[in-house]
């Protein structure tokens, strides 16, 4: 798994690549926390090169979404969610907790 962050004026674009499971989720959480610890609560998560995510990754997403939405200070939105991962998120009832976009520019522009 690899995470890269790009800072925009109104939000951070975080790209996660590879596989997020119980082994790599702690690192994924840490990268998300880096943004929120810096006061960045508007986050676009680019999942276009994400190959796999288990419930350990969903847990990290949920914690970050909670943190970001507190006091209406921001939120996490998802962009380019691969079909398989979208199906799993759907099954877990997570899709309604996150806005999703097909286009990165549109997602960044939503903030």
């Amino acid at each position: 798994m690899e995470v890269t962050t790009q800072e925009f004026k109104h939000c951070d674009l975080i790209k996660v690549r590879g596989r997020v499971d119980s082994s790599t989720a702690p690192q994924f959480s840490k990268e998300l926390d880096k943004a929120t610890d810096n006061g960045k609560y508007k986050i676009v998560l680019d999942m276009s090169e994400l190959e796999y995510m288990s419930s350990a990754g969903f847990r990290a997403l949920l914690a970050t979404q909670r943190n970001c939405k507190r006091y209406n200070r921001g939120e996490v939105v998802l962009v380019k969610v691969p079909d398989r991962i979208r199906e799993a998120l759907d099954l877990a009832g997570f899709t309604e907790l996150f806005k999703t976009f097909d286009d990165t520019t549109e997602a960044v522009g939503s903030f």
Partner: peptide, 14 residues
């Protein structure tokens, strides 16, 4: 909703 969502038990459910 987001505030009340529990993650425990999700693995077994899936």
């Amino acid at each position: 909703d987001l505030a009340e969502r529990q993650i425990g038990g999700l693995g077994v459910y899936l």
